[in-house]
Amino acid sequence: MTPGPLLLFDLLLPAVLLWLAWRSLTSSDLFRAVILFIAFNLLLALAWVRLEAPDVALAEAAIGAGVTGTLLLAALTRIESAAGRRLSRPARWRPAALVLTGTALLAAAAGLLWSLRLLPTMPGGLGPLVDRHLAESGVDHPVTAVLLNFRGYDTLLEVAVLLLAVIAIWCLDEAVPFLQQPLESPLLTGFNRMMLPILLLSAGYLLWLGSHAPGGAFQAASLLAAGLLLALFSGASLPAQWSGLPLRLLLVLGFLAFLAAAIIGPLTGRALLHYPPAWVKPLILLVEWLLTLSIALILTATVIGGRPTGSRPYPPPASPAAEGRQR
């Protein structure tokens, strides 16, 4: 039996999470929904801590607190400037439809919970299997070993998904100015000057940590992306000549490195993604470093939400008209 206060904690946290999710979905004002969702993401990281999932907690904290919140707020600003700030209420349901959906959902819940009771608690799962082969994986931390070696295929395609996301976003629209008008606050520039090196160091720390403890490329990349976002908020942007081929190369670099490492296997008579045992460790480290750089840029590009135009810096500075209004 878990000790008293811990059990209360485990009863209260899911309740708070459910309440936040419910309030986020049903609140009339959209901004309140986004803020409640950000609070939901913060507390979700606590749930992963209680479920003994350190890597997932790190990823949720880094991506949830850093990237998703900024992504939603940026999108909300653009949507409201285009479609106005109207409150939206749920669809007015005919009673029959409401009853039908309600019972369907409750039946699904009952079914799932019932099936949970029948689930046998089979011993060990895949943990012991991973631990047996951990030595050959080139890293000491099981989750990183699974991510980059045993199930490298998922991670390879996952980076491809991220790349596709950027390509899809770039097809839709050109980059709009990231801010209506730059936030010229001396405190912010001072804060950025202090925070950017710290974020860079912490990203390196998480990346180095990934080989023997919870951490790794994705968490490090979201920290780097958060640093880049901080820079964007104080008006920084990539000069025009860098936002052409060099940016595209950097975005694709991580995926290409992983692909090259994967292809070494078949070239040397092994299966795809089967790294030659001699240089497993350096190969994985190199791939992880390049992945971190590319994913950080990809996450930032998704927040900017538009393709770079050859002539202007990426994202373009605030338009002069907005500056005129600036006090």
Binding site: A45, A62, T70, F191
Partner: peptide, 12 residues
Amino acid sequence: VFALLSAVTAIA
């Protein structure tokens, strides 16, 4: 990570 990123959303 929480401490590092708590400012990003607020600045957004």
